[in-house]
Design a protein around this nucleic acid. Structure first.
Lengths: 190, 190
DNA sequence: AATATTACTTACTAGTTAGTAAGTTGTCAA
DNA sequence: TTGACAACTTACTAACTAGTAAGTAATATT
């Protein structure tokens, strides 16, 4: 029955990559089909609409983040190491052909996004913020991080700056991205 | 000869608004023509290609920023007031139907942008960064701002976070944007 | 009054978009 | 070995995309 059982996963991989590369309005079923060596309609067979495909990409991304943060490899890290791990996600995203944060990419086009994709974007952002807030609080309580104000506000600032820095790096080069990460460490650890 | 002499300016206004609302790939000549009450080809008469229109929008934005920052109203402000003025640009952008920073919007789609639009985006970002860096340096020398590391790095962090915060606010509401501004003041003035 | 120019409209093209309906083929279970 | 089903292909549609060529009408210049 299956000519290649992993077609569905490959479509999700390609869609995720294209989303981070060109944005939601910048990729098409034709792109995915061509790169997969398959016809347009085959993609529609696995994901009937672009809305369903977009939502599935974000859902998988959310599941992955949940899995990682609940795994002992991350859970048992110190606050500093946890933050370094979080930064490394963005560093790797940047290194991977100058890609951009999935949440940031979707938020830029938020006003032309279908409903379920909007809701998935909102949920993903909320989960990233919640984890960052917890880590920041834990680190300050442990005396590792130093900052004024609410952990929730600092979490918003850090996430927003990482999203923005990935985008800025496209126009200005990788140095600008690393500058932001460096500056955050200066601010938090001093 | 002119049925309405300000058509060109109105096109630029609409294009700028649509860019900040839907992104470069999210707006079309048809959108602009319809909202202007004019035909498709009339827009092409004023701006032969989408590339030319996009570049013209950014060029005007750059000219405006240069004019503002060179004007005594901004130039003679204290560093704290200058930063507040800069923040207010983004606050107003956010308040204006949840729009997004022009530079951030373009950077997200950078990989599918025509050459001259890319170059304009790079130039705009460089000018914003340069002004922020100068203001930060001036403020630290005057004892008004407190931060570790290089002013250039802190400028990158602040600009990236403002771009990101405008995007985040779309999915999460205005509060998240104000949280970022509040946190920056906490960080710089403490 | 004749001519040129500006600011358009009409009418089109070639390419791309998401999406669909109907047919085909390989594999597996009964 | 028949039939069901999964995973496609072929062939299409309606809507939209940027862009163009030719014509028109009002105004400005000579």
């Amino acid at each position: 029955m299956p000519r290649s059982t992993n077609t569905q996963r490959t479509i999700l991989d390609l869609a995720e990559s294209l989303l981070q590369d060109k944005g939601y309005n910048g990729f098409s079923y034709a792109h995915i089909a061509t790169e997969l060596g398959v016809k347009n309609a085959a993609v529609h067979y696995h994901f009937p609409t672009k809305e369903a495909l977009g939502a599935a990409v974000i859902q998988r991304y959310r599941d992955r983040f949940k899995l990682w943060t609940n795994n002992a490899r991350v859970k048992d890290l110190s606050p500093e190491e946890k933050l370094d791990w979080f930064f490394s996600i963005y560093t790797n995203t940047r290194a991977d052909h100058g890609k951009v944060c999935l949440a940031g990419s979707l938020e830029t086009e938020f006003n032309s996004l279908p409903d379920t994709v909007r809701e998935q974007t909102r949920a993903l952002t909320a989960e990233l913020l919640a984890w960052l807030e917890d880590t920041l609080k834990e680190g300050r309580d442990a005396g590792a991080f130093h900052f004024n104000g609410e952990p929730a506000d600092k979490a918003s600032l850090i996430l927003a700056s990482l999203q923005g820095a990935l985008q800025m790096a496209r126009a200005m080069g990788t140095k600008k991205f690393h500058a932001v990460v460096t500056q955050h460490k200066q601010d938090l650890l001093a």
